[in-house]
């Protein structure tokens, strides 16, 4: 059980690291939100799953299963709210007239019909 918990935690940390690198390395606002929204959600799913498993694995009783379920509920909450928050931030960026990064600098954002 501990091996599985450790494995999930490492995977979660991998996603978190990817998210952090992405936020630092991506070229503009919109692309930075991509790792911030997606990889953090995935990373926390792994980390919360590991914690729930750990709690249940300590002693299998009704109380520990309930605690595990509560931890998983945090995951559900983040799964609902994190993409919505990212969506709202992107929307605000578009409203504020922020143009997405393009490699060639020739494409105009306004030509995309937004």
């Amino acid at each position: 059980m501990n091996i599985l918990v450790g494995f999930l935690l490492v995977i979660g940390l991998f996603f978190f690291t990817g998210g952090a690198v992405g936020i630092l390395r991506m070229p503009d606002f919109y692309t930075r939100l991509h790792p911030a929204g997606k990889l953090d959600t995935m990373g926390q799913l792994m980390a919360m799953g590991a914690m729930a498993l750990y709690v249940v694995g300590l002693d299998l009783s009704l109380a520990s299963v309930l605690t595990g379920l509560k931890i998983l509920l945090i995951s559900v909450l983040v799964f609902i709210t994190s993409p919505t928050a990212t969506h709202a931030i992107v929307d605000a960026g578009v409203r504020a007239g922020m143009e997405p990064w393009t490699k060639s600098e020739t494409e105009d954002f306004r030509d995309l019909g937004a």
């Binding site: 909450l77 609902i80 709210t81 929307d91």
Partner: peptide
């Protein structure tokens, strides 16, 4: 005047989250 679109996703999520 500065926030025109229908934000269906944000509205339904907030409606879902608020009671909790």
């Amino acid at each position: 005047s500065n926030w025109v679109p229908h934000d269906l996703i944000i509205k339904s999520t907030s409606r879902f989250i608020t009671p909790f």
